[in-house]
Design a protein around this nucleic acid. Sequence first.
DNA 1: GCCGTTTTCGGCCCGACTGTTTTCAGTCG
Length: 569
Amino acid sequence: MLNLKIAETFRNLSQLFEIRQDNPFRTRAYERAAQAIEGLNEDIEIIAQEGRLREIPGIGEDLERKINEFIGTGKVRAYEELKKSFPDGLLELLRVPSVGPKTAKLLYDELRIQNVAGLESAIAKGKLKGIFGIKEKTIENITAGISLFKAGKERMPLSVAWQVAESFLKPLQDLPGVKKISCAGSLRRQKETIKDIDILIVSEKPQKIMHHFTSLPQVQEVIASGSTKSSVRTDDGIQVDCRVVMEKSFGAALLYFTGSKNFNIKLRQIAIRKSLKINEYGVFRGKAFVAGRKEGEIFKLLGMEYIEPELREDTGEIELARKGKLPKLITQDDLRGDLHTHSSWSDGNHTIQEMAHAAIRQGYSYIAVTDHSQGLTIANGLSVKDLLKKKREIEKVNNTLRRCKVLYGTEVDIDSQGGLDYPDEILKEFDIVIAAIHSGFKQSKEKLTHRMLKACDNKYVHIISHPTGRLWGTRNAYEIDFDAILTQAKDTNTALEINSFPLRLDLNDSHCRRAKERGVKLAINTDSHSIEHLQAARFGIAVARRGWLTSKDVLNTLPLGELLKAINK
DNA sequence: GCCGTTTTCGGCCCGACTGTTTTCAGTCG
């Protein structure tokens, strides 16, 4: 996929324009295009082949040509030309917090500073003093920015972000004077990775709240502290922003603070066309306040349905909301069971009975215990002999249960040729069969794809688990031809999994949206290895919602009887 | 450079906080 490369080219162009202080609107047009391309859930080459580039918001005649140029030649001439007039490391300077385009240009013009290393040594030699507009405090800020840049503060997984957010939400929500509190930003949109945490509070006493916020024990550094807005950094280096507004502005502020940026811009443009103005305090006609207390009333005023935070990325949701045709997103309450869990029979920590009772507490009416197959010895995979014993144990447990049924399952290994780790006579005995790749990740794209297609072909395989194999911080997704897999899954009535395990989230949101468009069913599973892991379903739900899924798109929202019929091949 | 239920030209989202140049530009979200 060239999507990210093209987006990067446009972003670099935008930043070079910014440094050159080119037409600011042209600058923004390139940045918007970069964001739009990043957010695509399709291969841009396919869009180009089908002549649909102009349908991407922010892509006009010129950028269409530049995209086609990149696809054809691997380069954009205009970018290569412009790059020549700047040193290579200049864009790097913009990634230092508190260094923006103006400062970068100033540093380059005055001191010929071309990259972060140069900036660092210039500071060490005291060369920054004396430059017009730069004094002690600015140098301090830039120095701090450099250490942040070098620390390479990465994004954190959604699950970690929730933990950090709760460590702020809990102490703040009980403070006297806090009337409402909510997280906002990409956390509220439930993106799979989060950069910083945003918190919004309703209070008549903003100063007091700000004081409490900036003095919480986990705060290591106060980056900014104003009367209604403050930013801090925690001891883990995570930035948390907090903003206090009046009650009548809560909806407007929540909308603004939740973003995404492109979503907000489009909403504000629509408002302007209706002679309205939106800011974080409300919607105004002239100077008159017309709405702002709730997000819902703002959407209504703009002539559209309420848009769930997970959809707010400006990838078509605004247009559908204006027509009243948004999908009704799946919620956690829609889930009736979990189809991928492990017990102490293989590498899980709890017995089948313990897993079943945990499922009941979760409100489920079924749980599939899908232990590993024999070849996966490292995970204590089950021999054919063990399977019989396990089956009997499940029957025994089921005899003690009334509201919940344990399904006899397996997570069968797909071998390096696409064969399965149990023969068909064994596979047909299971209530549910999940197939997954656990080795040979470095094979070619063709070979990996072939293995998956072959697994789908087996009439006893119901679900392909963690289809892209990525594991946060450990390995990237392996290369597969996802479109070919979608076609095969559809043709063979094989479902694909959204693995909710916080370090996997595999499939991801854009995979889900593509699967839904192709009519492929999904299963939201946790891959639990202990009873606590069952809670992770909320992250799979987050992925599904961001992927526009409704309960109809997801297998395990079905009652047991319908589920068993639906998976039948 | 993009875009149109006022426009194919003339607009383009909006505001808080900081530091510095004492009236505002730069950065950030």
